[in-house]
Structure formats: structure tokens, C-alpha cells
């Protein structure tokens, strides 16, 4: 894991340098903030799924929960309910999905893959049903603030009376990302619940025989994943000021990819938020940089696939040589 982290950090730095040199507009304030903005949603999802993966589980429902929470927030908002209340409701629905995942995995002892595969279908189905598969548009202007607003935006009045932006400000999603990463990093490393999550993932039976409430621990992990998927959904829909029931298809795989690139083991028991953040930035920066270079989306897919394989292969090769 240590090696993989080292490889991941190096890859991140190399990417940054390469793109800065080869792409003229890459290393600008505007673009760096854009990368942050684009990475933020990946980071939310990645952090959530990292919790689940450390317990030895998996969450395939993330993409669908994104759509459901965004749609709920959109519909309520359009119905005239205050934007922040509708956001909160979207978040609660997402947490409900996470809770349900956790209960299915613990109370019914379903394999996490199956439980969350089911939830993936259900949440998507509900999102499509309640919207009639149509995008929810015509939302109040305030709906877009969370995704499009920025802090410390600096503008000056130019000679001809127009507002000119000198510093675009730090987008709210980037600020939320920093807060979320810090909070969930703290919980994982310094809080009891984090310790329990690692213990359950390392050796479930030993954890149980040490008096750790294994079920509750797992439920918390799925709850975190659900909540952060919900946050992702709200931020995403807010950015386009439209709630899309088709949004987020396949995003759970991006989330899993960022966790894995950052050194989280699918076997459970290991993984860190810092690693996942690095993983999320690698994918985000690759997408952004390759876009600016005019590389097609398909080629981007290929490259990201190679990065996932290379990151984990480096770790495996290292382990083999240790033997």
C-alpha cells in the first residue's frame, strides 16, 4: 500500500508537470480551479466508497443514488419548497438508500455486491419513475448557487462599466470537498468508528469476538457512502440547474477506481482518505488535461483504464519482490 501511494503521488506530480508544460492554458488559476471543481464530485463518491471498501464491502448503488437524491431535491424545489430544505431531503433520501444497503448486508447477510446491485436498480428506477424519465428543469435560480457559486470572488469595474473578474473565487464544491475530506479523514483515523471500520475489514471474526458491533459498523459505512453519493447528486444537479434522472450512470466505478488507485484494497482492511483524494485527482486531472489536448473521450477511457491497472500492478509487483 505504501508503494502504491508513492506511485500514485508521483503519478499525480508527473501528470501535473507534463500537462503544465505541454498544454498552455493548463496551469492557470482558472483551470486549476476547474480541475478542483471537476474532481470534487469524484472525491465525494470516492471517500464514501472507501469507507465501504475498507469494511470489505462494495457499493454499486452510488451512481443511481446520485440521480435519486438530485431528482428529489429538484422536484421539491420546483414544487416551491425552499432550496436548502429540498437539498436536505435529497440528502436524507440518499442516506436512506445507504441505510437500506447496510441493513441488507448485515440483517439479511446479503453479499454487498448483490445488495447494492439491487439498490442500484431500485434507486434508478425510482428516479426515472417519479420524473417520468424527463429532466426536471425550470428550477429556481438559488438551486444553482451550491454548484456554481464561489467564495472570495474578486471583480473590478472596468472603464466601460462592465464587471471584470480578476479572481474567479474558490468554487463552493471545492470548499465542501476540502471540508468533507478533512472530516472523514479525521473520523477514519482518529475516531472510534474509524477504528471499528478497519477492525471489521481486517478480521471480522476477531472484531466480533472483541465486542465490536460489526453490524452497526457496517451500517455506518454504507450510510456514509449513501450520504456522500447524495451530496454528489445535489452538487451535480445544482451545477447544471437541472435534475437529471439519467445522471451518474456508472459513476460508482469511477469512485471505486479512485479508491483503488489510492491504495485501498478490495479485500478490506486497508485504505486511506488521502489515498482516495490522490486517486480522484489523478482521474480528474487526466480528464481535464486530455480534454484540453483534444484527446477524444474514448482514448481518455483507455488511458484511465491503463492507470487503474498500472497503479495496482505496481503494488502487486512490489509485494511479490518482498517475498
Amino acid at each position: 500500500m505504501v508503494v502504491q501511494r508513492f506511485v500514485a503521488i508521483s503519478a499525480l506530480i508527473v501528470l501535473f508537470v507534463v500537462f503544465s508544460v505541454t498544454t498552455p492554458k493548463f496551469f492557470t488559476v482558472q483551470n486549476v480551479l476547474t480541475v478542483g471543481l471537476q474532481t470534487s464530485t469524484m472525491a465525494f463518491m470516492g471517500i464514501g466508497v472507501t469507507y465501504v471498501i475498507i469494511t470489505g464491502g462494495i457499493d454499486l448503488s452510488i451512481g443511481s443514488v446520485i440521480a435519486l437524491s438530485g431528482v428529489v431535491a429538484g422536484l421539491l424545489s420546483r414544487a416551491g419548497i425552499a432550496v436548502w430544505v429540498s437539498f436536505l431531503c435529497g440528502l436524507l433520501v440518499a442516506m436512506g438508500c445507504g441505510m437500506a444497503n447496510g441493513l441488507l448486508v448485515t440483517r439479511l447477510s446479503l453479499p454487498p455486491f448483490i445488495a447494492t446491485l439491487g439498490m442500484m436498480q431500485i434507486a434508478r428506477g425510482v428516479a426515472l419513475q417519479v420524473t417520468g424519465a424527463r429532466a426536471v428543469a425550470g428550477l429556481p435560480e438559488k438551486f444553482g448557487v451550491l454548484g456554481n457559486g464561489a467564495l472570495f470572488r474578486v471583480t473590478v469595474l472596468s472603464g466601460d462599466g462592465r464587471q471584470v473578474v480578476t479572481f474567479p473565487g474558490i468554487p463552493y464544491p471545492v470548499i465542501i470537498m476540502v471540508v468533507v475530506a478533512c472530516v472523514f479523514n479525521f473520523l477514519l483515523r482518529r475516531h472510534r468508528i474509524g477504528r471499528f471500520i478497519y477492525a471489521v475489514g481486517s478480521n471480522e471474526e476477531a472484531a466480533r469476538l472483541s465486542g465490536i458491533d460489526v453490524s452497526r459498523t457496517k451500517i455506518v459505512a454504507y450510510l456514509v457512502s449513501g450520504a456522500l453519493a447524495g451530496l454528489t447528486g445535489i452538487v451535480m444537479m445544482s451545477r447544471i440547474v437541472t435534475a437529471q434522472p439519467n445522471a451518474g450512470v456508472g459513476y460508482e466505478l469511477d469512485a471505486i477506481a479512485s479508491a483503488v488507485i489510492g491504495g485501498t484494497s478490495l479485500m478490506g482492511g486497508s485504505g486511506t482518505i488521502a489515498g482516495t483524494m490522490i486517486g480522484a485527482f489523478i482521474i480528474g486531472m487526466l480528464r481535464n488535461g486530455l480534454n484540453m489536448q483534444g484527446v477524444s473521450y474514448f482514448i481518455q477511457q483507455i488511458i484511465i483504464g491503463l492507470v487503474i491497472i498500472a497503479a495496482v500492478a505496481a503494488d502487486r509487483l512490489q509485494r511479490r519482490s518482498e517475498k
Binding site: 475516531h191 472510534r192 477492525a199 481486517s202 478480521n203 469476538l209
Partner: peptide, 24 residues
Amino acid sequence: KLAGLAVEMLLCENITMANVEEIS
């Protein structure tokens, strides 16, 4: 190794595993 310890975790974490309340 199967039921008594989380062998991938640290010594101190294993010692406190049944009583994390006491150190938090």
C-alpha cells in the same frame, strides 16, 4: 490469526480493540 487478532493492524490497535472506549 483467524479469530483472535487483526494481524494486518498494529500491536497497539489490537491491544485496545476490546476497549476502545477507554482510550477515547
